[in-house]
Every structure is written in structure tokens, then in C-alpha cells.
Design a protein around this nucleic acid. Structure first.
Length: 429
RNA sequence: GUGGCUGUAGCUCAAGUGGUUAGAGCGCCGGACUGUGGCUCCGGAGGCUGCGGGUUCAAGUCCCGUCAGCCACCCCA
């Protein structure tokens, strides 16, 4: 075997491309229904766009090199810096809130695993300029509606949602100093992966007492509104810090999406820049990686682009979503069937088939015909294999009468149709 | 970047402890079938057994390296 795609990169054969187009179609459909406008930026960006604010550790995962002009450049690993630049450049002229989405191909030089490649397409939906919880709910609802539109219900997909302000408040009450919040987040983020003893040891090693470490893990185990309310009741201004999260969850319930929502304080998200509501979309069986992740990142636009606008958004990759779809329907997406397969009975009929085929294609019909002289049976076999709904048979006898035979390939019925009415005959399903 | 497992036809997989010409199903091509498809039957093509080296009379099989895939870590999209 020679000549294959680079590790972590994909060849899209027709079946794969069909799946990708299905995903893209749903993404665009949902974005449009939420009033989002599409934007895009360059796949290649200056290296500094990612190193200056995102942290140097990202550089190790960048496809970066020097171009022929001596510039340090990188394939984009995420869309947010580009978005920040574009928004900042025209922020004064843009009506707020800004609803923008994009479907960039992103690149990251990492060792690939299932559901995680070196390249993927990612739906980014961002709502900029609105700090309130209805904006958070709007974004989370859009993420849920993508999987709903694909036919998945709450028994298949779960939205796990939390709020960093709530977690921070509870941790502060538990005795975690501000400087150790990220340490605590790290432990909470791993709460379902690592055993409690390991996590507690890590927290103690980081400088927390054993008692506080236990309380940190207890915060991470909070699930559901009742448990959260009970925990917040012990914090002086507990109700206030959870106001936005409660409002967001309530809004999702008003939308009829409450069945998808799991309040889950173990969701903190790895990225440091999230400041409020955070959420992830998972398959209910938890056999896949996260389908989507997002949250509120007030402050990031100021750091990246210089304009101080609140923002909330999510990213949803095509890889895990594709696995969810193919896992649910192993049959997979089929290529669009033909409206008709044109059959020439004899060699004299070929030129008539060519003329008719072009007429039908101009009329928007999807048609195909045999590209070499073959027997009638052979051509019908090809028609069936191609998934054509009908065969249009052109032979000397019919031509003499100005007609063609339209054969329905699903039930075998045939009828004679005048050539000039063939477009109409193929139009009705 | 670290560690473990796995690489046989386009796909899914076979080939007891090394043994002579690496097989099957599906798919593909052709024929039965030059004015009627799906089914059936018959035939055919398709393999440097991922690649390179080593051990051996003999390697798909054992050893080393390398590349790729999967899994875990790391990191997260």
C-alpha cells in the first residue's frame, strides 16, 4: 500500500463526503434558524495570533512553519482568535448582540486517536455583546438543536451544564484560596476519570488541606438543581451567584429542552478563559468523546482583540458527531439517487439518448446513461445499481412513434410517454 | 511527547507448536442474458502478508527497527 493521507488527515470517499455534507447541512440549517450569519477567515494565520495570548504550551500542538517571506505562520487550531480580530476591527459598526457562526477546518499536531484527528471541521457559534443568561441559553439550545435535528433525543444525547462562578463560589466557601482555583478545577474536571484518593492526593500535594480537598471533590460531585440548592443554602450569598445558571437552565426548560439538561458541577472545561456558564454535549452511553463544548468567555475578546465585549459560544466538531450518526444508523448515507437512467436499445439510439439526457439535465433532472454499447439487460442492471428511480428506454419502435418507455424500477411498471412530455413524467415522484 | 496492543485482497476475516502454490464471504469485472434490472448459477481479476533488516534448510507465523491504526496518559476541539 502506497500513497495514503497523512496521519490524522482524511480522504473523503463519496460515502464520507455524503456524511460530511449532511452534517454541514444541519449546521447551516440550525444556525440559520437562530438568526446567525456565517463568516470565515484564513486557514493560515500569523503564529503570534496564537502564541501571544493563548499560552506557549499550545505552540507544541500547532502546525507552524516559516513561509517563503520569512513570516512565522500557523494553520489555525481554533477559530476564536480570528473571530476576535474580525469583531474588534468592526466592533463599533456591528449591531449587538452579534450572532455569527463559522465552519472552519482546524488543525492540531497531536497524536491521533478515535474521535480526535489532526484536522477536523468545527461548527463555531458565538453570541457577542450580551452578558445575560438568555444568551447562554440561546447558545446551549442551538447546540442541542443540532443533535435534535439529526434525530437524537434526550435518551441519546445529554447536555451537561455548570457555571464557573458557582463552582468558584462554592470552592471559596469550602476554603480554597483564589490562587488555587485552577488546581481545584483540574481535580474536578477529572472527577469521573480518576479515583477519589488520587484526586485528593493531588490536591493535597498542591497545597490544600485534606479536609478542604474532600470538600472540593464534594463540590464536583454535585448533580441536579436540588443538590445545588442545598449546597448553596450554606453559602452567604449562594442564591445570587447561581442566579444566571438557574435562569439559563430555566430558559432551556421553557424552550422544551429541559429533558436534555443535566446540571453537573464536574463540568469546568479545560480552557482557562471561561468565566461563566460552561456546558458539554455527550452521548448518553458515554462511549464517545464530548460532542460539543462551550461556555461564556467574557474578557477574552478584550485580551485578544482589544474590544471589551461579553461573549458566549461553542465549538462542535464533525468527527465525534459523525461517529454518533454512523453508530446510530450503520447503513450510512447513500448517494442521492438518480431521477432516471436512460437506456439505448441499439447503437442508433445512442445519439437520441444523449440529446434527451442533456434536455433533462437542463431541466434539473438527475440522469445518467451507459457510456459504452451494452445490452438492454446490462444497462438496466447498472440503472438498478445506481439507485435510479426509473429507466427511460429509447428504442427504434418507440422513436418511430415519438415516444419513450418509462419503466418504474421499484415496481416494474411501464408506460409509453410522448418524448416532449418526458420532463413532466419524471417530475412527479 | 510517553506506554501497551494490533497490522494478511477494496471491505470483514481464515491460514494447530515456523513447513512447500496464503484461502473464504461480501464487493468488483465478465458470461448464462444482443428489447427488460434486482435473484440464481458459472468464470475471472485482485496480495512484495504495512515497510526494512535479522534468526532458520524453511518466516504471514519468531526477533529487532520503522511506519501506520487502536487504547491509555498528556492535552483538549
Amino acid at each position: 500500500m502506497q500513497g495514503q493521507a497523512l496521519p490524522g488527515f482524511r480522504d473523503f470517499y463519496p460515502g464520507d463526503a455524503a456524511l460530511r455534507n449532511q452534517i454541514f447541512g444541519v449546521w447551516r440549517d440550525v444556525a440559520a434558524r437562530y438568526g446567525f450569519e456565517e463568516y470565515d477567515g484564513p486557514p493560515l494565520e500569523p503564529l503570534e495570533l496564537y502564541t501571544e495570548k493563548s499560552g506557549d504550551e499550545i505552540v507544541g500542538q500547532l502546525y507552524e512553519f516559516e513561509d517563503k517571506g520569512g513570516r512565522r505562520v500557523a494553520l489555525r487550531p481554533e477559530m476564536t482568535p480570528t473571530l476576535a480580530r474580525m469583531v474588534a476591527a468592526r466592533a463599533p459598526a456591528l449591531k449587538k448582540p452579534i450572532r455569527w457562526f463559522s465552519m472552519p477546518q482546524l488543525f492540531r499536531y497531536e497524536r491521533q486517536q478515535r474521535g480526535r484527528l489532526r484536522e477536523h471541521f468545527q461548527l463555531n457559534m458565538d453570541l457577542i455583546g450580551e452578558p445575560g443568561p438568555l444568551a447562554d441559553a440561546e447558545i446551549a439550545a442551538a447546540a442541542v438543536d443540532v443533535v435534535r435535528t439529526l434525530g437524537f433525543g434526550p435518551e441519546v444525547v445529554r447536555l451537561r451544564i455548570s457555571d464557573r462562578r458557582v463552582v468558584a463560589g462554592l470552592l471559596g466557601h469550602a476554603g480554597v484560596p483564589d490562587g488555587m482555583l485552577s488546581l481545584a478545577y483540574g481535580a474536578i474536571d477529572k472527577i469521573e476519570r480518576d479515583p477519589p484518593g488520587v484526586l485528593a492526593d493531588r490536591l493535597v500535594a498542591g497545597g490544600l488541606s485534606a479536609a478542604i480537598a474532600d470538600r472540593v471533590l464534594a463540590v464536583g460531585r454535585l448533580r441536579g438543581q436540588d443538590a445545588l440548592d442545598a449546597a448553596l443554602a450554606e453559602v452567604p450569598d449562594g442564591a445570587d451567584i447561581a442566579e444566571d445558571l438557574s435562569a439559563c437552565v430555566g430558559a432551556l426548560a421553557d424552550m422544551g429542552l429541559g429533558g436534555f439538561v443535566d446540571l453537573d458541577l464536574s463540568i469546568v472545561r479545560g480552557l482557562a478563559y471561561y468565566t461563566g456558564v460552561v456546558f458539554e454535549l455527550f452521548d448518553a452511553g458515554r462511549s464517545l468523546r464530548a460532542i460539543c463544548g462551550g461556555g461564556r468567555y467574557d474578557g477574552l475578546l478584550r485580551a485578544l482583540g482589544g474590544v471589551d465585549l461579553p461573549a458566549v459560544g461553542f465549538g462542535m466538531g464533525d468527527v465525534v458527531l459523525g461517529e454518533l450518526i454512523t453508530g446510530a444508523a450503520p447503513a450510512g448515507a447513500r448517494a442521492a439517487p438518480l431521477d432516471a437512467f436512460l437506456v439505448a436499445v441499439g447503437s442508433d439510439d445512442v445519439s437520441h439518448v444523449l440529446a434527451l439526457a442533456h434536455r433533462l439535465r437542463d431541466a434539473g433532472r438527475r440522469v445518467e446513461y451507459a457510456l459504452k454499447a451494452q445490452g438492454l439487460g446490462k444497462q438496466l442492471k447498472l440503472a438498478a445499481a445506481r439507485g435510479a428511480r426509473r429507466a427511460v428506454i429509447v428504442g427504434p419502435d418507440e422513436r418511430a412513434r415519438g415516444e419513450v418507455v418509462v419503466r418504474d424500477l421499484t415496481d416494474g411498471g411501464e408506460q409509453q410517454i410522448a418524448v416532449e412530455r418526458i420532463e413532466d413524467a419524471l417530475a412527479n415522484v
